[in-house]
Design a protein around this nucleic acid. Structure first.
Length: 480
RNA sequence: CGGGGCGUAGCGCAGUCCGGUUCAGCGCGCCUGGUUCGGGACCAGGAGGUCGGAGGUUCGAAUCCUCUCGCCCCGACCA
């Protein structure tokens, strides 16, 4: 068993840290709040990048790169933006041994600097829409860091678009949110709820914000991606205008959207168990670990030869495979080694397997005997591929089931308060409250309105807090 | 920033109350040799520490005092 991992039930936060250490995903840096992403963790991020980048291209976006340093005055041009971000800014005051005339902000996000250039690049409606994306690091000074989930520096992707009309920019924000939703489900096997943010939870400078929310193993909500309709707020601040068909100057309508290395945290918390990490095949750096087993030197040669053959066949078929032929550790050690790292499939190749013409396989997502089976050498690559596909869909189904089992509906605030502490999870509640109601909710229960799902029941209800008629339901939960 | 806890070998810790040959130790990991190998192997030997830092008390400090730095957890903000 995983002796080095605290069971989730006894201390979830410790479990999370243990998994990250044991799976060698990351290490903490000498600077508080920063982390080193280790090879296994970075490979997961790279797979996430690959999947998203392809989707961004498919939706017509082009990659760019804007600088890390932003003149402080840029941030100050948009009132809400500066107010929202100033507490978490890192500011550079010196360069080249001298005090700078104007301090530089290490980007917390790039709306301002991008608008500076949008205003240069956009002249007429024929330049629109402008659909850009950048992969970058950003810095937001964090008081309570947590590996992957909340770090002072993190890696992300930020999309920035400019459109001629409000409708188009609003549609873009929703379109990209749906891309995130699909990606999370299909590739990460993480079910998410796509919805609109309340006024209180909105991005600083946005007219409308949206999010996808995933659920961690302890029933907390993790905001795993956001998109925003920025209106003309930044366009006005930076004078980003275009000449329309009628030869009139108009401000562009903008969107921005991002997901970060937090997605790795979403994967860890949505799938991980007391044995460690559990990776969906789509993003697993290695999809199959091949463990050769031998007793005598006589057996070793034959076993290794077969294992090498299997590994290279799988690799040739496009399956990311690792042959663990170390002779310094025991097979049992290897089993645990790949298990804690979340590798979806393990193939054991020993004398019995050679005799039987098969491998002994073990699926990470079905612990114990249930996940063990044999696969014949004949047609192994094809069968492996379909097993991986099944694991991928089983993991989504399981995650969905876990989430649904921790999703509740109650009618009144009294009921909510009575159960929320004992039963953390997502609460689907009729909502017609305002800022003050949200603040009271958080003060009294630590829960917040995570979002108002885009997909709503065809009905109306009564707001669980205010008793007013409500047209939509909200997801209320404890946030990470 | 408020409250609580902790800094001793790479990691996890005991020792601190009551200062001194059971105080510099234990488990894991690491190195060497041998036996092992189908769920984290065993035996033997070995390497490894400014006891977070500075100052003080004392014949003597991991242990007592003062200051300082850092980390973790719980609250107010966030992808």
């Amino acid at each position: 068993m995983a002796e080095n991992i605290t069971p989730r039930k006894s201390d979830y936060s410790q479990w999370y840290q243990d998994v990250i250490r044991e799976a060698e995903l990351a290490d903490s840096a000498p600077v508080r709040g920063c982390m080193v992403i280790r090879p296994w963790g970075y490979a997961i991020w790279e797979n996430i990048q690959k999947g998203l980048d392809a989707r961004f291209r498919a939706t017509g976006h082009e990659n760019v790169y804007f600088p890390l340093f932003i003149p402080q005055s840029f941030l100050q041009k948009e009132a809400e933006h500066v107010e929202g971000f100033s507490p978490e800014l890192a500011v550079v005051t010196h360069g080249g041994g001298k005090r700078l005339e104007e301090p530089l902000v290490v980007r917390p996000t790039s709306e301002t600097i991008i608008n500076h250039f949008f205003s240069k690049w956009i002249g007429s409606y024929r330049d629109l829409p402008m659909l850009l994306n950048q992969w970058a690091n950003v810095v937001r000074w964090e008081l309570r860091p947590r590996a992957f989930i909340r770090t002072t520096e993190f890696l992300w992707q930020e999309g920035h678009t400019a459109h001629a009309t409000e409708a188009e920019a609003r549609a873009e924000a929703v379109r990209m949110l749906r891309v995130y939703e699909e990606f999370a489900r299909k590739v990460l096997a993480v079910p998410v709820i796509a919805g609109r943010k309340t006024e209180r939870e909105k991005f600083a400078g946005a007219v409308e914000s949206y999010s996808i929310e995933s659920m961690s193993g302890n029933g907390w909500a993790l905001q795993s991606g956001t998109s925003h309709y920025l209106g003309t707020n930044f366009a006005r601040a930076f004078n980003t205008r275009f000449l329309d068909e009628n030869n009139e100057q108009q401000y562009v309508h903008q969107s921005s959207w991002g997901v970060s290395t937090r997605l790795v945290g979403a994967v860890i918390t949505a799938h991980g168990d007391d044995h460690g990490l559990k990776l969906p095949p789509e993003i697993a750096p290695r999809q199959v670990a091949v463990v050769p087993i031998w007793k005598s030197e006589a057996e070793k040669a034959g076993v290794l030869q077969a294992a090498e053959r299997i590994a290279s066949d799988l690799e040739a078929a496009g399956i990311r495979t690792k042959l663990d032929d170390r002779d310094t550790v025991s097979p049992g050690f290897k089993f645990n080694h790949w298990e804690v790292r979340g590798v979806p499939l393990r193939f054991e190749v020993g004398p019995k397997d050679l005799a039987g013409g098969h491998v002994t396989a073990s699926a990470r997502n079905r612990p114990g005997r249930e996940g063990k089976f044999t696969l014949p050498f004949e047609g192994l690559a094809g069968e492996t591929r379909s097993r991986l596909a099944s694991i991928q869909s089983e993991m989504l189904a399981d995650a969905e089931q876990r989430r649904d089992a921790m999703t509740y509906e109650v009618r009144t605030y009294e009921e909510f308060k009575a159960v929320f502490e004992e039963k953390p999870g997502f609460y689907r509640l009729w909502w017609a409250g305002g800022r003050e109601d949200e603040e009271r909710l958080q003060e009294e229960t630590r829960a917040t309105v995570r979002n108002i799902p885009l997909d709503q029941p065809d009905a109306e209800g009564t707001c669980f807090m205010t008793g007013r008629p409500a047209r939509s339901m909200a997801i209320v939960a404890r946030a990470y």
